[in-house]
């Protein structure tokens, strides 16, 4: 899932400073789980903005809406009526959701109320950890199920570096050293032979250095005829 956290309230207030009608739009998927942009957080942010507005004579009109998933057009269309007439929409979905709303409603001002951070998972209540680097060429089969791209501070493929100390990363003693974890995982699995081989320089073409990536599933792509029929429905 995507992990995000809310921007500081003062920053959000600054972003919408000169607006009057403001919609806070949440998402019930990933950001609800990481307690950043779900139904509950929409309520708290909207109420905070109202208090701020009252206190500073901003006369903001704050309204609220939540959709199942802001990253899918089908769901986003539900919020069309709420966006009507708004000066700005504070999306507290991830950066993906905010952009999909912007694409569907190009005349509306969509701003993000969250800082989208990473692809990760809840570790324990209130703690969320990054897991996947989205490099486009997965190596988990070589690394005992632990991603060195996201979880090693140097994204090393032949770690650990000399800064691995007591199983912790030199960059942050709170962070486990990914290569220490990889070594122990491969040892447990009886596959230490994997770590003895040098992993050659990585092909980063499938990663993000070539601009936005596009994945096509040919069998799901609509033919022009199908599109026409669909467009008729929409």
């Amino acid at each position: 899932m995507i992990i995000a956290e809310q921007k500081p309230l003062t920053e959000i207030c600054r972003i919408v400073e000169n607006d009057h009608k403001i919609l806070v739009a949440g998402c019930k998927s990933c950001v609800a789980i990481c307690l950043a942009g779900g139904e509950k957080e929409v309520g708290i942010l909207a109420e905070s903005l109202r208090l701020y507005s009252d206190l500073n004579n901003k006369e903001w009109e704050i309204s609220e809406v939540v959709v199942e998933r802001q990253c899918e057009k089908e769901w986003v269309r539900e919020i069309g009526p709420s966006i009507e007439g708004k000066d700005s929409v504070v999306s507290i979905a991830c950066g993906v959701g905010a952009q999909v709303v912007q694409e569907l409603y190009p005349d509306a001002r969509i701003v993000s109320g969250l800082n989208t951070s990473n692809m990760g998972a809840p570790d324990e209540p209130g703690i969320f950890l990054e897991k996947c680097g989205g490099c486009g060429d997965c190596v988990l089969h070589l690394t005992g199920g632990i991603c060195p791209i996201a979880r090693c501070a140097k994204s090393m493929l032949n770690g650990p570096c000399g800064g691995s100390q007591n199983g912790k990363c030199e960059v942050n003693p709170d962070t486990p050293c990914a290569w220490d974890q990889i070594y122990n995982s491969l040892k447990r699995l009886g596959r230490l032979n994997l770590i003895e081989k040098v992993i050659p320089p990585k092909n980063w073409i499938p990663s993000s250095s070539g601009g936005p990536r596009k994945i096509v599933r040919a069998e799901a792509v609509l033919t022009p005829e199908e599109k026409k029929t669909k467009e008729g429905v929409d």
Partner: peptide, 8 residues
């Protein structure tokens, strides 16, 4: 924390 951000 929220209240002090808001200004209360």
């Amino acid at each position: 924390r929220l209240l002090s951000d808001i200004g209360i």
